[in-house]
């Protein structure tokens, strides 16, 4: 088995020395031709850029992100959705329903009501006005199931290379899982408890090499 090796961790303000000519990427800033970290996190090279993946922190929505949210309020022209980001997200009626609706007559509760869980896509984030759409592929209301939250920056680790990690969990626990970029994970199916355990372990140990083996062991 691969050793449990810890990836290099940097703190905010720490200079990132790579010995290569890399440009300042996400989670870093440049000053006097030197690159520094903005976060407590793990430096990672992406092509000609060096980025820092934070070990914790809030989800910052980006256009195109697929997120899972909880409907919290029904408004006149749409729904307020909690996507666990610093702002409220809004799902406008026109992005959710195809048929013509006379909002004076129809109670929007019949489409979505508070506590409904939705899988949707971010279409706008300007100045903290986060808008969602249900028009994209896969968008839908998630029924049954359980949701758990993980640190958003650990989503890529949970998914794994080409989905390898998440697919392994799905197979071994006979569950259906949807992962929102915002760190909300929805699980439905047979061994939900075991799937949650695996997800929590990945969150806890995302900074360690050899994680795949450990998860495999847990699931077998």
């Amino acid at each position: 088995m691969e050793d449990e090796k810890i990836r290099q961790i940097v703190v905010p303000g720490e200079e990132i020395k790579t010995g290569k000519d890399l440009k300042s990427g996400h989670g870093t800033y440049e000053e006097n031709n030197k690159i520094y970290s903005k976060f407590l996190g793990i430096p990672q090279e992406f092509g000609s850029f060096i980025s820092v993946i934070p070990l914790s922190g809030p989800y910052l929505p980006k256009v195109g992100d697929k997120v899972i949210g909880i409907v919290t309020d029904v408004e006149k022209a749409g729904w307020i959705v909690d996507i666990k980001c610093p702002w409220q997200a809004f799902l406008p009626l026109s992005e959710a329903v195809d048929e013509f609706i006379d909002i004076k007559k129809v109670n929007l509760n019949r489409y979505f009501e508070p506590d409904d869980i939705i899988y949707s896509e971010v279409i706008d984030t300007r100045r903290g006005d986060v808008h969602l759409t249900m028009r994209s592929q896969m968008s839908r209301k998630l029924k049954e199931g359980v949701i758990v939250e993980i640190t958003p920056s650990k989503v890529p680790r949970l998914i794994g290379k080409d989905g390898s990690m998440i697919n392994m969990i799905k197979d071994k626990t006979k569950t259906t899982i949807r992962v929102g970029q915002n760190g909300i994970v929805w699980i439905s199916g047979e061994d939900i408890d075991k799937a949650i355990k695996a997800i929590k372990l990945i969150e806890e140990k995302s900074h360690i090499y050899g994680l795949t083996n450990e998860i495999e062991k847990l699931l077998s």
Binding site: P12, G13, F39
Partner: peptide
């Protein structure tokens, strides 16, 4: 603040 993952220039 560092533990909260807030972006900082320095500690």
């Amino acid at each position: 603040l560092a533990n909260a993952g807030i972006p900082m220039r320095d500690l």
